[in-house]
Simulated assay, not measured.
Amino acid sequence: MNIKILYFFMVLLLLSCNKDAKHTEVASDNMANDIVKEEKQSIKELKEELKAKGYQTFDYIDEKTRDTIVMQQYFIAFLKRGNNRSQSKAEADSLQKLHLAHLGKMYEMGYADISGPFGDDGDIRGITIYNVPTLAMADSLANADPMVKSGRLEIEIHPWWAGKGLPLR
């Protein structure tokens, strides 16, 4: 009797593994199709699309790979310690929640690609990299942050160039 139960569970396990393998295969095929679609956009098309949206770009040839790298202008906002740090702990905690919600919204809307605090207690508290076409737009979005509005943080923005689509490592 115990052997029959053991065989039953082994067959059940094999069937479930086969179902997972089929699901993984379908997911892998879908991901491969998405990658092929992304690769089909030529450098020329990418540059034209970015230019039409108002972005600044230039390109160069990577010496090792001989690939054309499209450089896009982003805007890096340094979030610096502000002059108004007199809020109560409850007010500061509330502002922090609003600040994180603002940064999350910027990411979800596609305006900010990366944000995060620095790991020390220096005057520069963190950064946000804005993926927008103009300094004025980055400045407006950064200054809409509740922490900035309260004076707890100040913004310093600089144009910053990075390879379009290159991953963070």
Rank of each mutant, 00 (worst) to 15 (best):
Asp123His: 13
Val36Ile: 12
Arg125Met: 12
Leu100Lys: 06
Phe75Lys: 03
Ser115Phe: 15
Gly119Thr: 02
Ser88Met: 01
Lys97Gln: 04
Lys22Val: 11
Glu25Lys: 15
Leu12Ala: 07
Phe118Met: 00
Met71Ala: 10
Gly104Met: 04
Ala136Phe: 01
Ala21Pro: 03
Gly82Leu: 01
Ala101Val: 09
Ser16Gly: 10
Asp59Leu: 08
Tyr74Gly: 03
Glu108Phe: 05
Met109Ile: 11
Asn84Val: 02
Leu13Trp: 00
Tyr55Gln: 07
Pro117Asn: 08
Arg125Ala: 09
Leu14Thr: 02
Thr24Pro: 01
Gly110Asn: 04
Leu46Asn: 08
Tyr74Cys: 03
Asp121Pro: 03
Asn2Ala: 10
Phe8Ser: 12
Ala77Leu: 00
Tyr130Arg: 02
Ile114Asp: 08
Asn18Ala: 11
Tyr7Glu: 15
Pro146Asp: 04
Met10Thr: 03
Lys97Trp: 02
Ala112Ser: 02
Met31Trp: 13
Ile69Thr: 00
Gln72Glu: 06
Leu95Ser: 10
Met31Tyr: 15
Leu14Val: 03
Glu108Thr: 15
Ser28Glu: 10
Lys19Cys: 12
Ile124Cys: 06
Ser86Glu: 11
Pro117Gly: 06
Gly82Asp: 04
Ala21Gln: 06
Arg81Thr: 13
Pro146His: 06
Asp29Pro: 07
Phe75Arg: 01
Val26Ser: 11
His23Ala: 07
Asn30Lys: 11
Ser42Asp: 14
Ala92Val: 01
Leu6Cys: 13
Lys44Glu: 08
Lys89Tyr: 13
Phe78Glu: 01
Arg81Ser: 14
Glu49Ile: 12
Ile3Thr: 09
Ser88Tyr: 11
Met109Glu: 10
Arg66Glu: 04
Ala144Leu: 10
Ser86Leu: 11
Glu91Ser: 13
Met109Ala: 14
Phe9Leu: 11
Thr65Gly: 01
Ser115Gly: 10
Ala112Pro: 01
Asp120Gln: 05
Leu14Glu: 00
Ala138Tyr: 02
Pro133Val: 04
Leu6Gly: 05
Asn18Pro: 01
Lys89Ser: 05
Val26Pro: 08
Thr68Cys: 07
Tyr111Thr: 02
Lys89Leu: 04
Gln41Phe: 06
Leu50Arg: 05
Gly119Asp: 06
